[in-house]
């Protein structure tokens, strides 16, 4: 089954840039406007966070945006309402990221069905362990053509990376350095880790995120991986007040 995300990485070797934002933040109705600004600004794909009250892998910036988004009324049913028909206007691949509990309360089957209807291409669910995914959901994800994007860290063993590469799809997400999102670890410190993963012949493309902020971070990552995701730094940009032009400027400054 064709998947925009898989196609994106298959079509060219160009380094891919993705930005993350929290749905419902700064305002409930911003989702489509931000997507449009990002597509026009030239990002390769987008990661949309759906908020959770207790995001254990996230740092303060994304925690705050999640809390505000919930207060604004964001929920999965609202997000799917906003994304319905989005494929008439937005063409770049869309990845949803969030925690398991809201998905379970929405219902996994219904969640998958809504992703398909809205044209979502991949999912990052940090607290859904790959073992549980393989046991319970993999068949449904594959039937729906949805990518399940696994995370790895500097502590992940080579055997485990191969296991995740076998069962994941879309791309493999290199958490760049130990930490929650928005960390201030210097990426150079993780050069050995990037080097090690780069040397592994994996099935999936490699994309780095967590603590990626600047153009120089991107320049460094170009040597090792196929793409990068910037989250907290962009959420902070949105927080400060944004326009299509400011987003385009933000993206251009990274390239």
């Amino acid at each position: 089954m064709s998947n925009r995300l898989t196609d994106l990485f298959a079509q060219s070797d160009r380094f891919k840039l993705s930005l993350f934002f929290t749905a419902g933040y700064p305002r409930l109705v911003d989702t489509e406007r931000i997507l449009t600004a990002l597509e026009e600004g030239g990002v390769d794909f987008v990661e949309i966070g759906f908020p959770f009250s207790d995001p254990m892998a996230d740092g303060p910036v994304i925690q705050n945006s999640s809390q505000q988004a919930i207060a604004n009324g964001m929920a999965l049913k609202v997000l799917f309402g906003q994304l319905k028909g989005i494929r008439d206007r937005i063409r770049i691949p869309l990845v949803l990221m969030g925690y398991l509990n809201p998905v379970l309360q929405f219902g996994m089957q219904q969640f998958i069905a809504n992703c398909v209807t809205c044209g979502v291409d991949g999912l990052i669910l940090p607290d859904l362990p790959v073992e549980v995914y393989v046991d319970q959901y993999k068949a449904q994800f594959e039937a729906a053509g949805l990518a399940f994007i696994p995370l790895i860290t500097p502590q992940t063993s080579p055997e485990r990376i191969r296991f995740l590469d076998t069962h994941g799809s879309g791309f493999i997400y290199l958490v760049s350095g130990p930490g929650t999102t928005g960390g201030d670890k210097c990426l150079e410190q993780e050069a050995a880790y990037f080097e090690r993963v780069k040397a592994m012949p994996l099935r999936l493309p490699k994309v780095a995120g967590f603590g990626v902020r600047t153009k120089s971070d991107i320049e460094l990552l170009r040597q090792y991986v196929d793409g990068a995701i910037i989250g907290s730094a962009f959420v902070r940009h949105l927080e400060a007040g944004w326009s299509n032009a400011s987003v385009a400027h933000f993206v251009a400054a990274l390239k």
């Binding site: 959770f52 207790d54 254990m56 925690y99 509990n101 379970l104 309360q105």
Partner: peptide, 22 residues
């Protein structure tokens, strides 16, 4: 509460209809 996931385990927890922990 209703069944859901909090702090790494499946259990009963107090939450909203949307799965936000109260």
């Amino acid at each position: 509460g209703r069944k859901g996931v909090i702090h790494g385990n499946m259990t009963f927890l107090m939450q909203t209809e949307d799965g936000q922990i109260t």
